[in-house]
Amino acid sequence: MADKFEFARQHKLFSLYTALVVLILAVAIFAPYLAPQDPMAGNMKNVLQTPSAEHLLGTDKLGRDTLSRIIAGTQVSLFMTICLVVLIAAVGSLVGIVSGYFGGKIETVLMRFADMMLAFPGVVLAIAIAGILGGSVVNTILALLTVSWAKYARLVRSLVIKLRHSDFVLAAQVNGTRTKDILRRHILPNVLPMVVITGAMDIGTMMMEIAGLSFLGFGAQPPTPEWGLMLNEGRQYIQTAPWLMMYPGTAIFIVVAVFNLWGDSLRDLLDPRHDNTNR
């Protein structure tokens, strides 16, 4: 056992970003214990208070503590984002593997469908879907899933097509390995790294899109402490209570920035072919 910290020493930046990601995750998980006050408890005597020692980031129109709501929002936003990214990656990979490995009519139909989704600005459709189905956490995820899986399907399919003709897959086929096992043991492990990288790099974008839908009122509904929704509510008080729109936005910005940095460094780590030093 050489050195436990060897890895961290060699990949300083990646380790730093990972630590920050872990920190954010910890805030999300322990949100109920970290929030100084109950994020849902209103107090009509304390409406729209400016930031003070008691309420570090002020209070909103119902007298709820903004800091507590932002901390609680970490949980909501992160949970939604991670669910969404995992679902997109899973659906996209499934479609990609099926169409890449089996080919034929299935592939044509699925890929036409994917092309359709790619040939169209997804946000517009996502707004329409989430809006028409009615704003809720589930519908937001559903809407963004509908418009985002195609990128992954295309990516995975192109990887699988290359793998399908590689020697080890042909060998497995000659050996009479069941298709199910080939897919699980040979195909999946080889496409997974790229899917994980792409997923990690998409976390930030997806978080912003979720917040955007909530901001329009087509996402999480009151009184959920969701950052986009908080911005929507704070927007009406931009003149009297600017902290209501400053701090939730800052929270989104910080978390998105950390995940973007982490995603980029994860790609550099796992995919050495990608030269990111100068270009």
Partner: peptide
């Protein structure tokens, strides 16, 4: 450019509105 990428554009809009408008 990194900062810009990580900033939700509607929030940027709100901040600009606050600073330059209000």
């Amino acid at each position: 450019s990194f900062v810009g990428v990580s900033m939700p554009n509607f929030w940027l809009g709100l901040m600009l509105l606050y600073i330059f408008g209000l």
